[in-house]
């Protein structure tokens, strides 16, 4: 590690990727390790995420901020979850099945927007239920990534991204309804 830091610190003009690596490599590794429980696989996930990031650096405006930190952690976390699922041969529900159940784009969330101040709690609730759903909605609506960019970052198809977003919205709606009932009951 000392050798590495010496090399990297000697660079007069350290570039953005190096800054990011120095700042976040440890927590990215630990994020992957907590899911995969394997040093080599966790290392692979970090490498994969860095490799993707090096081709998409313009998305990072500021390095030391929560937005960048969460973006990187979400990428590594989802890559790790997918790798874990793949290892366990866990498959997601195919797109056709979702299509039969109706697309979530048609779901109307407007009844719930007034509870915007509750979104921290709702986000926590969604993450507790199914973290990848909260992650994918965050990438799409907070980090403003396109479907294609998400697909490239998470190594899944664009169809799969759309499916996950729709499923996430459906689950979110059910949470909102439930929280709404509880909220009303408390009044």
């Amino acid at each position: 590690m000392i050798t590495f830091l010496l090399v990297i610190h000697n660079e007069k003009a350290r570039n953005k990727l190096e800054e990011i690596y120095i700042q976040y490599h440890r927590e990215l590794f630990i994020t992957a390790y907590t899911i995969l429980k394997d040093y080599h696989e966790a290392q692979d996930m970090v490498q994969n995420a860095i490799f993707k990031l090096s081709n998409n650096l313009e998305k990072i405006i500021e390095i030391k901020c929560k937005k960048t930190r969460s973006y990187l952690v979400i990428i590594v976390r989802n890559l790790s979850i997918d790798a874990y699922n793949h290892k366990k041969r866990t498959a997601y529900i195919p797109f056709d099945e979702i299509a039969r159940n109706g697309m979530a784009d048609n779901l109307n969330l407007d009844e719930h927007v007034l509870r915007i101040e509750e979104s921290k709690e709702i986000a926590k609730h969604l993450a507790d239920l199914h973290q990848p759903y909260a992650d994918i909605l965050t990438l799409r609506y907070y980090h403003q990534l396109s479907i294609l960019e998400i697909a490239n970052a998470l190594e899944i198809t664009e169809n799969n991204v759309s499916v996950r977003i729709n499923r996430a919205k459906k689950v979110l709606k059910s949470i909102l309804e439930k929280v709404g009932v509880e909220y009303e009951e408390t009044i």
């Binding site: 927590e27 907590t34 969460s70 979400i74 969330l109 927007v113 915007i116 979104s119 926590k124 979110l172």
Partner: peptide, 23 residues
């Protein structure tokens, strides 16, 4: 809807950072 989802994403990002700190 987009504003709500943006804000929810913002909160999820904050939660994620807190989780990482804990990890």
């Amino acid at each position: 809807n987009e504003t709500f989802l943006y804000n929810m994403g913002y909160e999820h990002a904050q939660n994620t950072c807190d989780e990482v700190e804990a990890l």
